[in-house]
C-alpha cells in the first residue's frame, strides 16, 4: 500500500528488491542507472532525512534503490527524478555538512520530488530488518514461540500492577 500520492503496490522494500533485481533501472541512460551516482546521492539525502547514528550505509542504499525503482515505474517520473537529482548534484549536496544538508532539504520540502522520496524512503527504510535490529525491534516472533517465555513481561523498573478489574464499584 502506498501512503503517498502514487498508486497501490506491494510492500515498499519487496517491490524495490524485485524491480531492481529483475529489470534494472529501465530505459535510456538519463542518470538513474547503476553507477550514475544517483543511488549514492539519494542515500545521503535519506540519511539526512532519517539520521540514525551508528547505522551503516547499507539500509540507506536499499531505501535509495526503492526510490529509484519507484522513479523508474513511469517515464515522466523518471525524467523528473533525474532532473531533480542532477540539480542536487550541481548544488554540491553530497559535500554539504549535516546542518547545511538539512537546511537545503527543508527549503525543497514542498516539492513533489521531495515528498515522493520522503514517502517511499520512509516505507522502505523502516521496513528493513537491519534498521529494526538497530532500533531494538525483533521482527516476526510466532516461529520463536512468541514472547511468552522470552520477555513479554520483563520490565523490572516498575512494580507489578493489578490485572483484574477494580472491585470498588461503579463510578
Amino acid at each position: 500500500m502506498e501512503l503517498t500520492r502514487s498508486a497501490p503496490s506491494g510492500s515498499a522494500s519487496s517491490v524495490a528488491v524485485e524491480t531492481v533485481a529483475e529489470r534494472g533501472y529501465r530505459g535510456i541512460p538519463i542518470g538513474l542507472e547503476r553507477g550514475s551516482g544517483s543511488r549514492k546521492l539519494l542515500a545521503r539525502m535519506i540519511r539526512v532525512m532519517f539520521p540514525h547514528d551508528g547505522l551503516s550505509d547499507a539500509p540507506y542504499i536499499r531505501a535509495a534503490e526503492a526510490v529509484l525503482a519507484l522513479a523508474c515505474e513511469k517515464p515522466g517520473r523518471q525524467v523528473a527524478f533525474a532532473a531533480a537529482i542532477q540539480d542536487l548534484m550541481n548544488e554540491g549536496f553530497e559535500a554539504m555538512d549535516d546542518d547545511a544538508a538539512l537546511a537545503h532539504l527543508r527549503k525543497m520540502s514542498a516539492a513533489d520530488f521531495f515528498t515522493q522520496v520522503q514517502g517511499k524512503a520512509l516505507l522502505a527504510f523502516y521496513d528493513d530488518p537491519e534498521v529494526w535490529e538497530h532500533l531494538g525491534y525483533e521482527g516476526p516472533s510466532f516461529d520463536k514461540g512468541g514472547y511468552v517465555n522470552r520477555g513479554f513481561d520483563d520490565l523490572d523498573w516498575l512494580p507489578d500492577p493489578r490485572i483484574d478489574e477494580y472491585d470498588g464499584g461503579e463510578q
Partner: peptide
C-alpha cells in the same frame, strides 16, 4: 506498532532529526 507502522503513522509526513 512495529517500526514500519510507527514510522508511517506516528506523525505522517514528518522527517528530520
Amino acid at each position: 506498532l512495529g517500526p514500519a507502522f510507527l514510522a508511517a503513522f506516528v506523525e505522517p509526513g514528518a522527517w528530520g532529526p
